[in-house]
């Protein structure tokens, strides 16, 4: 079968972000960018399914500006076979991304689509579910285990009280949780090889998708700062302060 994975270019998870002083957004100039960590897990899972002989081909897709090529190359170095870039300078929101991905799904006809459960910049957690809805596919979100069988997949999901297991009919959309796997590092030879792997480029217009944003960001501000606290010397002092000063116990 063919597996489609999506990779989003986001600010690296270790970066302390800075809100722009004009409150229009977050400063992305000269900031380290990476593949969204949940998408790395999606790529790793797809590559493992290929190594297990279950998948024949892994296609990685990214939607955004031309520099998203870097993240596609990363995925290719990790073991994906080829890339698709849907290039646009428009601000892409989850519904628009899902519509673009649906067009890619129609072209590629994958049996399994694996996405991260959320991107760490927008924190929306919507795209996978929206893609499944638009395609009329089943969905298995927040997956911590995937077992692909003939025509279906058994997926263990992380839910609020613990875990639940469901069987979804293929084709299906699965979104990854952190505990699905431990992504590998790309080796230098694989990074070199990835440069030769093909990347097809489309525009949303070519795919006939309207990507006009529906939600307008009016302003972005830093969260209110917490006042600096105090360091206590002993456990006695701590308990005393909690009882008599903060009055929380």
């Amino acid at each position: 079968m063919k597996i489609l994975v999506a990779a989003k270019r986001v600010v690296d998870y270790n970066v302390n972000i800075r809100v722009l002083s004009d409150n229009t957004g977050v400063d992305l100039n000269n900031v380290k960018m990476s593949v969204n960590p949940f998408d790395e897990i999606a790529i790793e899972e797809a590559v493992r399914l290929k190594e297990a002989g279950i998948a024949e081909e892994v296609v990685v897709v990214s939607v955004g500006a031309s520099n998203c090529q870097e993240q596609i190359r990363t995925a290719l170095a990790l073991g994906a076979d080829r890339g698709v870039l849907v290039e646009t300078d428009e601000e892409m929101q989850p519904l628009a991304i899902a519509k673009v991905l649906k067009a890619v799904v129609e072209k590629e006809q994958p049996q399994l689509i694996i996405l991260g459960k959320q991107a760490i910049d927008g924190d929306n957690s919507q795209t996978g579910q929206m893609l499944a809805a638009l395609c009329g596919f089943s969905q298995a979100t927040f997956a911590s285990e995937i077992e692909v069988k003939e025509g279906s997949a058994v997926v263990t999901r992380e839910v609020d009280g613990g875990l639940e297991t469901i069987t979804v009919k293929l084709p299906a959309v699965v979104t990854t949780d952190l505990r699905l796997n431990e992504p590998r590092y790309a080796s230098l030879p694989n990074i070199m090889k990835a440069k030769k792997k093909p990347i097809d480029t489309y525009s949303p217009d070519e795919l006939e998708v309207d990507v006009t944003p529906r939600v307008k960001t009016l302003k972005v501000v830093p969260p209110s700062e917490r006042e600096a606290g105090i360091v206590v010397e002993t456990v006695e002092e701590l308990v005393d302060k909690l009882k008599n000063e903060a009055k929380v116990i």
Partner: peptide
């Protein structure tokens, strides 16, 4: 986790950006 699971599906079917 339940709301996060079905609501985006609702939004997409209504053609709405959640």
């Amino acid at each position: 986790t339940s709301g996060k699971n079905f609501m985006p599906r609702v939004a997409a079917l209504l053609d709405v950006q959640q």
